[in-house]
């Protein structure tokens, strides 16, 4: 579904991603793990199109999208969420979701007809709100949501674009145990219809959800395979799981 070929990105002297080759298969939950600063967020930026790549190619469903605009990638079914919550803070939950629904249904160059007349937009937004556990919170302004609710909406915004592949950047960052369980349950529900590339530090969640795991260290993929194989991989243990394996 998604193929990365020798992808690299440098920031000045810092090599953030280095010759990354990776495949995400249709229908899988593919976890991408790696220590802080490994280049995971950078890689998501490159795939989603908010960051350009210095070298390499990105193929999505067989099409070369290396140079496609970000919004065009979203329209072709490739959405992302953010590690640091990024939403329309002064809008309500419902308006946030309805915007994302609007983005992929019909033209946005409509200047006269009020959006409020488009019931389907809001119906679907409400459905998504329910799906992410925000039923009853639709009218709340985003800035007034609790942290966990904001994280849920962060993922909800990506899902509202109805992607075929979603890139989730640490969806559970800063969540309590109960909220994490809700997020895991949400991912379990969507995995049947959406392919997921999941960046996550919570190893427990990763090994429960992932079909396959890739490990990024200093911008390079040092291992890729089934969770069990990754757990046993000596280089991975040394480079990354060392401190986490006991936990």
């Amino acid at each position: 579904m998604l193929e990365l070929k020798n992808l690299s990105k440098r920031f000045g002297g810092v090599v953030a991603t280095d010759d990354v080759t990776l495949e995400v298969k249709r229908g899988e939950v593919h976890a991408l793990i790696g220590p802080n600063g490994a280049g995971k967020t950078t890689l998501i930026g490159q795939i989603s199109g908010s960051l350009g790549s210095d070298a390499g190619a990105i193929l999505f469903e067989g099409l070369d999208i290396t140079h496609a605009a970000q919004h065009a990638r979203v329209r072709s079914g490739l959405a992302r969420s953010y590690q640091i919550t990024s939403m329309f803070k002064r809008f309500t939950v419902l308006d946030n979701l309805a915007l994302a629904v609007q983005a992929r249904s019909g033209s946005s160059f409509s200047f006269w007809r009020p959006v409020s007349a488009e019931a389907p937009l809001f119906d679907e937004a409400r459905t998504i709100a329910g799906e992410i556990g925000l039923a009853g919170r639709e009218a709340v302004v985003v800035a007034a949501l609790a942290h966990g609710e904001q994280r849920a909406l962060e993922v909800g915004l990506a899902l509202a674009t109805r992607p075929r592949l979603v890139l989730l950047d640490e969806p559970m960052a800063g969540m309590g145990p109960e909220e994490s369980e809700n997020m895991i349950a949400l991912l379990e529900r969507i995995r049947a219809r959406i392919t997921v590339l999941l960046v996550e530090h919570d190893m427990d969640a990763v090994f429960r959800l992932a079909d396959r795991v890739s490990v990024l260290v200093s911008g390079r993929v040092i291992a890729s395979g089934a969770p069990a194989a990754i757990r046993a991989h000596p280089e991975v243990r040394k480079a990354y799981l060392g401190e986490d394996a006991k936990a």
């Binding site: 989603s48 908010s50 605009a69 970000q70 919004h71 065009a72 979203v74 329209r75 959405a79 992302r80 953010y82 990024s86 939403m87 329309f88 803070k89 002064r90 809008f91 308006d95 915007l99 994302a100 609007q102 983005a103 992929r104 019909g106 033209s107 946005s108 160059f109 409509s110 200047f111 006269w112 007809r113 009020p114 959006v115 409020s116 488009e118 915004l157 990506a158 509202a160 674009t161």
Partner: peptide, 26 residues
């Protein structure tokens, strides 16, 4: 215009340009 689809996109861009692009608006 302010209440149309386009108007809402414009206001969304004012709030958060990066995210507006990331949910698929040109």
């Amino acid at each position: 215009l302010a209440h149309s689809r386009f108007g809402r996109v414009i206001q969304a861009i004012r709030e958060n340009e990066e995210r507006a692009e990331a949910i698929g608006f040109p």
